[in-house]
């Protein structure tokens, strides 16, 4: 009974709108000041999936951390469903997946996933934990500790953990970075169904242009540091997305368009060979 009421109250809330207004972020001061994010303005529609792409170290992750309430902006405002990020965080209504899987080494895979519910102040739900673990292909590994899992498995476990709460805002910071290519593609196609089913607003930071196009409704291209928005490209491919979309002319055009915005001109058939990884630009 408790479980049902819990779910019904959360679904009543619905995916939030995220408003990012005139955000600036500067580290250090005086002559050592480094400007990481410069005047970013962005509105994430409720229930949409937005991808952030840009050169390494451009400030994408900083932006995501500010939305998660982990860092404060030097100036500007962020509102999630009209509330401040740290208020939303305290209510357990946002969920973050980091580049590093950051699992607790002394807990099993299942217990790491279950921990998320505890931290968000939610009742236990072993069924959901089990369902998420099998979704990310960790059947039979529930009772293994992170040290006994491969790098990719740990990353998948972290993704499962991210989905374990009833968060309506998912902040994914390069979550498939350490996952092998085949699994990555499978997760790319399967995971959106999970969060689309739950009804979430999603922000995804990624290096892979293919992944960005495949997963999102909109791709934001960030410039080199200090990060600002250099292109905003809507992705109008119908959902659910399938593997066949990868080779459609529409898809290839979008990938080329984004790569151009990133300042890279490609051979047109390259995206077929896999996701294009933006090279390190310093």
């Amino acid at each position: 009974m408790i479980k049902n009421t819990g779910q019904s109250t959360t679904s009543e809330i619905g995916p939030p709108e995220v408003v990012i207004w005139a955000i600036n972020k500067t580290y250090g001061h005086g002559n050592n000041a480094v400007r990481a994010v410069s005047d970013v303005e962005l509105i994430l529609e409720p229930g949409s999936t937005t991808a952030l792409v840009g050169p390494s170290g451009c400030g994408k992750s900083t932006l995501l951390r500010m939305i998660a309430g982990l860092e404060e902006a030097s100036s500007g405002t962020i509102r999630i469903g009209g509330e401040m990020p740290h208020i939303v965080a305290r209510k357990g209504r946002l969920s973050v997946a980091f580049q590093d899987p950051s699992l607790l080494p002394w807990r099993t895979a299942a217990s790491n996933v279950a921990l998320a519910r505890r931290l968000a102040g939610l009742p236990k739900d072993p069924e959901k934990v089990q369902k998420l673990l099998s979704l990310v292909g960790l059947d039979g590994f529930e009772n293994k500790r992170p040290a006994e899992l491969s790098g990719g498995m740990r990353q998948r476990c972290a993704i499962a953990r991210c989905l374990a709460t009833d968060a309506r805002l998912l902040l994914l910071d390069e979550p498939f970075g350490a996952v092998d290519e085949m699994t990555r593609r499978r997760l790319n196609l399967e995971l959106p169904r999970v969060w689309e089913g739950q009804g979430t607003t999603t922000l995804l930071v990624t290096h892979s242009v293919t992944e960005a196009v495949l997963l999102s409704d909109r791709v934001i291209v960030m410039s080199h540091r200090p990060a600002h928005i250099s292109a905003d490209i809507p992705i109008l491919i119908e959902r659910p997305r399938r593997a066949s979309h990868l080779s459609s002319p529409e898809f290839v055009t979008l990938v080329t368009q984004i790569n151009t915005a990133l300042g890279i001109v490609d051979e047109p058939d390259e995206p077929d060979e896999g996701p294009f990884i933006v090279p390190e630009v310093r």
Binding site: G69, L70, S95, V96, F98, Q99, S102, A116
Partner: peptide, 14 residues
């Protein structure tokens, strides 16, 4: 604390 574990906990404001 390993990796971004502390960040993870902070993201819940526990």
């Amino acid at each position: 604390a390993p990796g971004q574990v502390i960040d993870y906990f902070d993201s819940f404001r526990v």
